[in-house]
Design a protein around this nucleic acid. Structure first.
Length: 469
RNA sequence: CGUGGGGUAGAGCAGCCUGGUAGCUCGUUUGGCUCAUAACCAAAAGGUCGUUGGUUCAAAUCCAACCCCCACAACCA
């Protein structure tokens, strides 16, 4: 059976999970829950010098180091309430073997060439011409002058596919979202040079060996991008029940690799291009990019510990824009939690359940609602924040309706018929809200259904979202 | 002359493509209600829509120039 295949970028595991990683997972999770029959990939990127060095510093075997870190990400994803179906690790032998198979298939588009550039022996990396000029030829970290070095690299001939990629984007066979990023990519394609896809072993040991050349190791992108199909079992398995991916979620910082290099690889393999590449913005902290040196990094685990999964999902899906950069501050988070989750929704559940209980109102058996809400159109376009806003209007509308219906007055007047009628309407409304909330706040949706759609209506003993002082 | 985004009420944003009384959320003030987590509902105050010029009967919206902020520029989510 055909599945809606949804992917997330695989994070580089040289550190702990970052708030930014959460965006990928949450958006993909909303998408996966919105479509029922979906396949959902997640994973970790585990090769490269930085990881190798970090493990050496810590005096831990590299494999053990990446095992631990990969586990941290898996735990993190679970704590976000995100349910993936497939998890890929780039150090998995299956993945490594498959990447080598892929490399072989790309052979016609790969060539060996010299790379020349400024190199810092301290950092063990090349710097760009611009960086070289800015630092006046001396590495600021190591106080050493850059050296001119040259090495042999394998290159992938991107130019073989530029026209096809441009055509796919323009004809919307492959859609890049949001639109302004698509414009950016179309410009970038023109100036994209061929891509260096290997490093000499002397420089990079922790990686997948290039097949047929002992002296070279694959460079990250070739290794990492392939994960989306190696996890499906490519090339030995038929992946047509899942591929092409319906949506690939990535941060805007790595969009270029996903929108240019990755499609080129797919074309070279004669595979279809993904239908949608959705790029989200960055999460800022107090209006600035998070960075250790500024000391404004928000630890997602801390947010989860303090407020739980549902509140986390709520804030990041509604108050962090789906496509643009948005700001996280604790103040904003607390405001949203108290005003919206606690007051609007939490209190609504409490007051309506209490009204039902006090007036002995019950539904006649569980109700099946089929809903065609206008937010669905937005969901289909990946405009999750806007869809969520629209759903919240429904929450507020129920509060308003209760105020207008004044069930407590009807109860005093003894108008039982009218009372039951309005309570029934209101319960239907909140059950509708529950269904709409499912992709965003699955646990909350479940709780609402349990309270209102399983016979006797009882207000929860503990408020769903206790207010914080 | 790198590329892209942005500059709209105290804060955060929508509106701009398809010109025609400037809108939403939070905050503030006032009123209502009492079912509810001192929650809910309503109303009010608050804006020369970055600057200058142009097109038009009419511009936040189209055009031009300029100023300011931010991101990206092969691996710092």
């Amino acid at each position: 059976m055909e599945k809606t295949y949804i992917t997330t970028a695989i994070p580089y595991v040289n550190g702990a999970p970052h708030v930014g990683h959460a965006m990928d997972y949450l958006l993909a999770d909303v998408c996966a829950r919105f479509f029922e029959n979906s396949r959902f990939q997640a994973g970790t990127d585990e090769h490269g010098n930085k990881i190798f060095q970090k493990a050496k510093e810590l005096n831990i075997p590299v494999q053990e180091y990446v095992d631990n870190n990969s586990k941290k990400f898996q735990d993190f994803i679970r704590r976000l309430g995100v349910e993936y179906t497939d998890f890929v690790r780039t150090t998995d032998p299956d993945h490594e073997r498959r990447v080598q198979e892929i490399w072989k298939k790309l052979n016609d588009h790969i060539y060996l060439s010299k790379y020349e550039g400024w190199y810092c022996t301290g950092c063990e990396r090349y710097v760009t011409e611009k960086e070289y000029e800015e630092n006046h030829g001396v590495c600021p970290d190591h106080q050493k002058p850059y050296e001119k070095l040259e090495e042999e690299n394998y290159y992938f001939r991107l130019s073989d596919f530029k026209d096809q990629i441009r055509e796919a984007i323009e004809s919307r066979k492959m859609t890049i979202l949001p639109e302004f990023r698509e414009k950016e990519i179309l410009k970038l394609i023109e100036e994209s040079p061929d891509v260096s896809i290997s490093r000499p072993k002397s420089q990079l040991t922790w990686g997948v060996p290039v097949p047929g050349d002992e002296s070279q190791v694959m460079y990250v992108w070739m290794d990492a991008l392939s994960n989306y199909i190696t996890v499906l079992g490519y090339p030995e398995k038929d992946i047509s029940d899942s591929w092409p991916a319906y949506a690939q979620f990535v941060g805007k910082d790595i969009l270029r690799f996903h929108a240019i290099l990755w499609p080129a690889i797919l074309l070279a393999l004669r595979l279809e291009l993904p239908r949608n590449i959705v790029s989200h913005g960055m999460v800022l902290s107090n209006g600035q990019k998070m960075s250790k040196s500024i000391g404004n990094v928000i630890d997602p685990i801390e947010v989860l510990d303090k407020h739980g999964t549902e509140a986390f999902r709520y804030f990041f899906l509604r108050h962090i824009d789906t496509f643009s950069d948005s700001d996280f501050t604790w103040e904003k988070f607390e405001d949203a939690y108290n005003n919206e989750l606690a007051n609007d929704l939490g209190n609504l559940i409490q007051r309506l359940a209490t009204l039902c209980k006090k007036n002995n109102f019950e539904l006649n058996g569980p109700v099946e609602l089929s809903i065609n809400h206008e937010s669905n159109a937005l969901m289909g376009q990946f405009r999750y924040k806007e869809a969520f806003d629209m759903i919240w209007e429904e929450v507020q509308a129920v509060n308003k309706k209760i105020d207008e219906d004044k069930p407590w007055v009807l109860a005093k007047e003894g108008d039982t018929k009218k009372l039951n009628e309005v309570l029934n309407n209101e319960v239907m409304d909140i059950l509708t809200v529950a269904i709409l909330l499912k992709p965003f706040l699955p646990e909350t949706a479940k709780k609402i259904e349990k309270i209102f759609n399983s016979g006797k209506i009882e207000p929860p003993k503990e408020p769903l979202f206790p207010k914080n002082k």
